[in-house]
């Protein structure tokens, strides 16, 4: 069975996280769960990868963190939530364009059908 090489996907972890945060602020486990669901369970992001991405993007000003308790199960435990910033939105757009270009280029060289 083919697995995703972590070298290839690395450049797009940020894109996935920003895509989810674009819809609503979220926290660590929730984000990793959504990544798993949206990829039909084909990509499971490691906890350390996720946390690294958070710290890196926060440093770059793409996301902001805040603490809050989840509304769903009111009074639940407090977690660190992340929300996307304006420059994060901009970065996300650039990453999408970059991917479209990458995909277009690489696509020309793929001859074996899945």
């Amino acid at each position: 069975m083919v697995e995703i090489s972590s070298d290839v996907i690395r450049g797009y972890n940020d894109t996935m996280i920003l895509y989810i945060l674009q819809k609503a602020p979220s926290y660590g486990y929730e984000i990793s769960k959504q990544i798993k669901q949206l990829s039909d369970g084909k990509y499971i992001i490691k906890e350390t990868t996720l946390y690294s991405a958070f710290t890196r993007m926060e440093k770059n000003g793409y996301i902001e963190s805040f603490t809050a308790a989840p509304e769903a199960d009111g009074g639940g435990k407090r977690r660190t939530y992340y929300r996307i910033t304006a420059s994060g939105q901009q970065y996300y757009k650039e990453k999408c364009e970059e991917w479209n270009l990458t995909k277009e280029v690489v696509e020309h060289f793929i001859s074996v059908e899945a």
Partner: peptide, 11 residues
């Protein structure tokens, strides 16, 4: 699914 610390170290 935890990953490894070397990755964390970088950031």
């Amino acid at each position: 699914e935890f990953g490894n610390l070397d990755e964390l170290a970088e950031t």
